[in-house]
């Protein structure tokens, strides 16, 4: 079940990516409408992170193309923001929360030029939006995992993009951070921003996202949550992984499966 849309904000055509001859993504073909909060769901090793990294040009493609706003990435870089996994950086780096958020302005300030007061104000404002203004001057190693994730999100906000790719923004964060982040993302999509999130928690997926991509090397499904988040398609995505299959039962809480506990 792959639903295509007219005037897509993201179009991926015939995309294949492989690591040393082993395909990680196979023949991905999808289109995504503007203004959705989309979740990429699939088992470990399904190529979820690889999909967004490839869209950002960080991993070479074996075949196919990616178009953003119907253009090549190079032409629209300033309108696109990428949030890497929190674990991908060394949080012992000598920098404050504000320093990291200021990095979000680097793409707007050209080479040779330095940041201005206006950039600092944007950065502080973004910290405020994620509830971290009190920690602006704190060194990033002194922050909790959830706070670090908020700082990463603030950096993405500071980029002032129209399309966001986020790699596991809910991984290892506390419940209140998760609530703050999801509220913020919903607010952003209400303003017409498009957000694509790699997500590992099936329990919250249907509640959080209004568009879902089910991925397991191949694209199993792509479409509005109510059409895609079905038992059949989830089973197709997670295949024979029994422990996950049983949790698929738990997730379909709408259908009121009998509780075996």
């Amino acid at each position: 079940m792959i639903e295509h849309v007219a005037d897509p904000i993201l179009e991926i055509h015939d995309l294949t990516v492989s690591y040393s001859k082993r395909p990680v993504l196979w023949n991905i073909d999808l289109t995504l409408p503007q203004g959705v909060l989309a979740g990429i769901i699939g088992p470990n090793g399904a190529g979820k992170s690889t999909l967004i990294k490839t869209a950002m040009g960080l991993i070479p493609k074996a075949s196919g193309y990616v178009k953003l706003f119907n253009k090549d990435l190079e032409e629209v870089r300033k309108k696109v923001s990428y949030v890497p996994q929190r674990e991908s950086v060394d949080w012992d780096f000598p920098a404050s929360a504000l320093d990291v958020v200021l990095m979000g302005r680097y793409g707007h300030v050209g080479i040779f030029k330095s940041l201005r007061q206006a950039d600092k104000e944007v950065a502080l404002d973004c910290l405020r939006k994620v509830g971290m203004e009190a920690f602006a001057d704190r060194q990033i190693s002194q922050l909790s995992g959830g706070q670090q994730q908020r700082v990463f999100l603030a950096r993405a906000l500071a980029q002032d993009a129209d399309l966001y790719f986020m790699d596991e923004p809910f991984a290892g964060v506390d419940a209140s951070t998760e609530k703050t982040i999801i509220a913020l993302l919903k607010e952003m999509t209400a303003k017409g921003k498009t957000i694509i999130v790699v997500h590992h928690d099936l329990n919250s997926a249907d509640e959080y996202f209004d568009w879902i991509l089910l991925l397991n090397t191949r694209l199993v499904a792509s479409g509005p949550t109510e059409k895609v988040f079905t038992k059949e398609l989830l089973q197709k995505t997670y295949g024979g992984k029994l422990n996950i299959l049983s949790s698929v039962g738990d997730l379909l809480h709408n259908e009121q499966f009998p509780n075996r506990e």
Binding site: K53, V80, Y82, P84, V89, D99, Y106
Partner: peptide, 21 residues
């Protein structure tokens, strides 16, 4: 000095640096 912000960002978060070109 002239490329200070490039050094900061490529050192702290290389994938992000690549994502902004």
């Amino acid at each position: 000095f002239f490329f200070y912000k490039e050094w900061v960002i490529t050192t702290f978060d290389a994938p992000y640096a690549a994502s902004i070109g």
